[in-house]
């Protein structure tokens, strides 16, 4: 028995070895190095020099740090729920029994397959305050659209709206969750004379709550790291730094200003924020998330 166990453990070790190496090299080492660098004056061209907590102290005083943090929080607070609602709604729609589902699913997923950078350029045109299609459409129903791209009040809302096109991934995961809901539960609800809304509210949502939690956590991690679209659409976070996000400032510090120690300190603060938010989500969800039979 012990021999068998030992054999199994050896096999397991061999099977897991890629990840053990990967974890050590691509995660554990960089994480430790990153902590160390965050207490150093460092750029790749120079050796790290220990400067204590100076990077963190400077960060606390750095108004741009706070600005990018609040921009990022704004984006996450609006884009995350919006994305979740849209993704769940689309998944619910796609879970009905109508013809041509294969087409619809593909259509909704399409934007996730087009390179984000080329989408960003399209959005620059669509949201142009003077001649963009969005304002043309708003004008059609008698609303004078704002200057989405050059008005600091509207540039972030524009980005939030844009993020909706990228819900394909989350939508597919919800859809998978929906297909896992036992049909008998709906049949039982039908017998009780439940309306469609009641069924959604009392059967569907509780049944897919683990998926919602999963997507919520992945969403927090993703939205807090928003980079590509604003980087391409708004160089330097213009206008007036209204679209200057955390990861953009971190990138600038690391690779443009050659302040890599400072960038590492920023990275660690971001990690802690994500950690805390994830803990909170897990704690709050304890009561509401329903884990099947297990």
């Amino acid at each position: 028995m012990t021999l068998k166990r030992r054999k199994e453990a050896t096999a397991a070790f061999l099977f897991a070895s890629p990840w053990l190496i990967g974890f050590a090299v691509f995660l554990a080492y960089p994480l430790c190095a990153s902590i160390y660098y965050s207490f150093c004056d460092y750029s790749v061209l120079k050796l790290p020099v220990w400067i204590g907590t100076r990077n963190y102290e400077n960060l606390m005083r750095d108004e741009i740090f706070w600005k990018t943090l609040s921009n990022t929080a704004y984006y996450a607070i609006f884009a995350l729920p919006l994305g979740m609602v849209v993704a769940i709604s689309l998944a619910l729609l796609l879970n009905t029994k109508v013809k041509g589902l294969a087409f619809y699913r593909t259509f909704f997923f399409l934007p996730s397959l087009v390179p984000m950078v080329s989408l960003a350029v399209l959005w620059l045109w669509m949201f142009n305050g003077e001649s963009g299609l969005v304002n043309a459409a708003l004008g059609g129903i008698g609303i004078k659209g704002p200057n989405w791209l050059s008005d600091p009040e509207w540039s972030k809302p524009a980005l939030v709206l844009l993020s909706v096109w990228g819900v394909g991934n989350a939508m597919v995961i919800y859809l998978a969750g929906l297909q896992d809901v036992p049909v008998q539960l709906y049949e039982a609800a039908d017998l009780d004379g439940a309306t469609a809304w009641q069924k959604t509210r009392n059967v569907t949502l509780p049944m897919i709550s683990p998926v919602i939690l999963f997507n919520l956590i992945m969403g927090i991690i993703g939205t807090l790291q928003v980079f590509t679209v604003p980087y391409v659409m708004f160089p330097g976070g213009s206008p007036a730094r209204s679209t200057y996000f955390y990861t953009m400032y971190l990138f600038d510090n690391a690779f443009r200003y050659q302040k890599m120690g400072y960038a590492c300190a920023m990275g660690w603060i971001m990690f802690l924020i994500i950690l805390v938010l994830t803990m909170i989500s897990l704690r709050l969800s304890e009561k509401h998330v329903h884990y099947g039979g297990s």
Binding site: P30, Y37, Q225, M260, A263, C264
Partner: peptide
């Protein structure tokens, strides 16, 4: 998050 690991 990737940015934490980016520099090292």
């Amino acid at each position: 998050p990737f940015p934490v690991l980016m520099v090292p």
